[in-house]
Design a protein around this nucleic acid. Structure first.
Lengths: 185, 185
DNA sequence: GCTATTATTGGACTCAGTACAGTATTACAA
DNA sequence: TTGTAATACTGTACTGAGTCCAATAATAGC
């Protein structure tokens, strides 16, 4: 399995020092097969996060159209991460001290934030009857997406004793969304 | 000048299709000289944004320690972008249709967001007497940083008729910060 | 003029990511 | 079983970003 091989190597020798050749070799496949499954080396760091965003996209599609936008969004987020257990921590967040390369891993993680912001912006725009590139909509979407990032980060850093991700997520979401209510209506 | 050469080439043939060799050649320097001034090709897209963040760092250092955290932060942001004119639009934001490559340029832009979030988180943590990796502090910092990003984005997209950046910035900041007041005190 | 520092350059290298053609494997039909 | 189509995998070759290091040019200070 490519992900397992990569995780081992990243922890052994660090992210930057691990080549795709090494990952493929340890997984017993060719280098090209690696690229059949992952478009970039950094994708390996964010498998769990990407899955969470995929899940969010689905939940947003199924969200009721009549309930208030922020409440529906909160609900969708909770559904999306509810079942993410303690073992599903993104590698890059727990092990970044071991595998060094702060900058590279971080910016690849931020790329995910863009996708999530887009999802939220579209959702809010649809529910509020505003254009998706409206300053208010975009500010709110980016802010909420940032709060979600914070939840992931703190959750991961809290180590073994941490509670379920969904609790962090709800807390972070509420902090930011409570004030948004007035501006968005 | 490297930046000018790059801007020309990006607009002529697109970002991805432009090589560092071409940029250096047009600027009349060697390829290695390029790397003396810019650590990465993508840095060329964000010169203005990076300058704004540098400016913000300075303003946060000089901010009064006694005034309320969010008010002081707002003030620092306003000071940091007050003099940014209509000609200082980041290339990546105005010309992304011309130079294609949405993903690559976007993720390099997001990398800046991380630096700005760190600045804001440190500032808030200091002013609130909380740890910098606190969920509340991090959520607020990420949210505010996201709002600032939204302001840059909409400002850039608004084209020729746009007003000063600082207006966008204040509006975006207020949307997000107004609700944060209660949570952070 | 001499010297120390800094700017620039050349050359060689690693490795991520892409392109494409060729081969194995599987699934499914007759 | 055989044939066939789709899919998974592999080999090879290439581009270009970014790094390293040693050498040379330019410049500032004396």
């Amino acid at each position: 399995m490519l992900e397992d091989a990569a995780a081992e190597l990243f922890l052994e020798t660090g992210y930057a020092a691990t080549t795709i050749d090494q990952i493929a070799q340890r997984a017993g496949v060719s280098r090209n097969t690696f690229f059949n499954y992952f478009a970039a080396k950094s994708d390996l760091l964010w498998v769990e996060l990407d899955a969470g965003i995929d899940r969010l996209a689905v939940e947003l599609q199924n969200a009721p159209a009549d309930s208030p936008a922020l409440a529906a969004l909160h609900e969708a987020i909770v559904r999306a991460v509810r079942e993410i257990g303690v073992d599903r921590v993104p590698l890059a967040l727990t092990q970044d001290d071991v595998m060094e390369t702060r900058e590279e891993t971080r910016s690849s993680g931020l790329a995910r934030l863009a996708r999530r912001s887009d999802l939220i912006a579209d959702f809010l725009a649809g529910h509020l009857g505003r254009p998706a590139d409206d300053l208010l909509v975009l500010s709110a979407a980016n802010a909420l997406s940032g709060a979600i990032s914070a939840a992931w980060t703190v959750w991961a850093r809290d180590g073994i004793g941490r509670g379920p991700l969904v609790d962090y997520m709800s807390a972070a979401f509420t902090v930011v969304s409570s004030g948004l209510d007035h501006s968005l209506s």
